[in-house]
Design a protein around this nucleic acid. Structure first.
Lengths: 187, 187
DNA sequence: CGATTCTTTGAAAACAGTCAATCTGTGTGG
DNA sequence: CCACACAGATTGACTGTTTTCAAAGAATCG
């Protein structure tokens, strides 16, 4: 719900009552059932999505038909197709729900407006983007330097809360490893 | 030199004469010889670095002693250790020159100031960061979905200008592949 | 030219992917 | 309550890819 969202924000930056109200007016609340899509490849990503409950993923499908997960998003995480969101070009990724979930959507137009009007919010979102970038760099480093085992070890240390929650095949699709290999590694 | 730098900026956003002068006062020009370091692992990254000539790389060394390249930076590219730059924590990466190079350095303090005073510059830099993030996502996708051959194919399509310029062992360290494998792939 | 660095090649071993079969747990409908 | 289907996890045998180690050829540079 909106409370979860606004708590998340006000835990990190201060907002006035009017500012909170602006955010309230801009937000869209939506329930998404497991396997339901928030964004299909080829569509234009017009919303930023904040997860208040459940778990979503963004992923791409390669030529050989396999799914490859770019990002998980559980409670208090954001997800979108940033390239499509930013440029208005068709998305290369899909976003769907791995569990029954609840999300807050804010359209790009509204979020741009909010960021303009609320400097604290702008700073927060820029900080989150910067952190995302750092995390990407870390993931790239792991991918080019590590074996499957090391990747898995790092994953369970970094995302311990996801480990009982997601099926292993899904984690395999995130790590870039076949499900069988992941299964064998865990011994 | 400074001209290259200011051209790069004013090709993308408009700056007034005073704004250009502010940037001029903030910049540091430096020549770097091949193999010379701009940043050592463990140091705090205090500068953003813009390359006007030559080529730099940022890389990490894994436990087994191998180099893994996170980023190349040729003319008109930026490079730093973003995590260290942003948080003030010690850097996990090294940055050094692959060729005799010339760079423009701007300290974080100065760049923050410039971005505050020059909205156009702020927008430009934020756009560049957003693009970097998108490129990271693309690279992650390639790493988890592709074979060594596909990665190399994509590399030569994406960075054709680097291909005669960098030794193959260096490209291998970027792709996350041994030099021998890369050598064999090229047939 | 000698020294260094880079590239290629070969053979063995380690690693990961594929395919097929089995096992497990969960949930559904009869 | 049982039988069944379904999705996920595991296992085995096999194949293919990649790494490693060692050696030998290019290429570059002082």
């Amino acid at each position: 719900m909106f409370d979860v969202f606004i708590n998340y924000i006000t835990n990190q930056v201060e907002l006035t009552a009017e500012e909170i109200d602006m955010v309230r007016k801009a937000h869209i609340y939506r329930k998404i059932r497991k396997r339901q899509f928030l964004l299909h490849e080829g569509e234009i990503c017009k919303y930023s999505c904040f997860v208040t409950k459940g778990c979503l993923r963004s992923y791409r499908i390669s030529d050989d038909g396999n799914e490859h997960i770019l990002r998980f998003a559980v409670e208090n995480w954001w997800v979108n197709d940033n390239e499509s969101y930013r440029t208005g070009q068709p998305s290369k990724s899909n976003i769907d729900a791995l569990e029954d979930s609840e999300v807050i959507l804010i359209s790009k137009d509204n979020l741009d407006l909010l960021m303009k009007e609320i400097p604290n919010l702008q700073q927060l979102i820029e900080k989150l983007q910067a952190r995302s970038y750092d995390a990407s760099q870390q993931r790239i480093y792991l991918n080019i330097s590590s074996t499957a085992l090391q990747k898995y070890d790092h994953f369970i240390k970094t995302y311990p809360t996801l480990i009982g929650r997601l099926p292993l095949r899904t984690i395999a699709a995130y790590l870039g490893v076949s499900r069988e290999t992941l299964s064998r590694i865990r011994n």
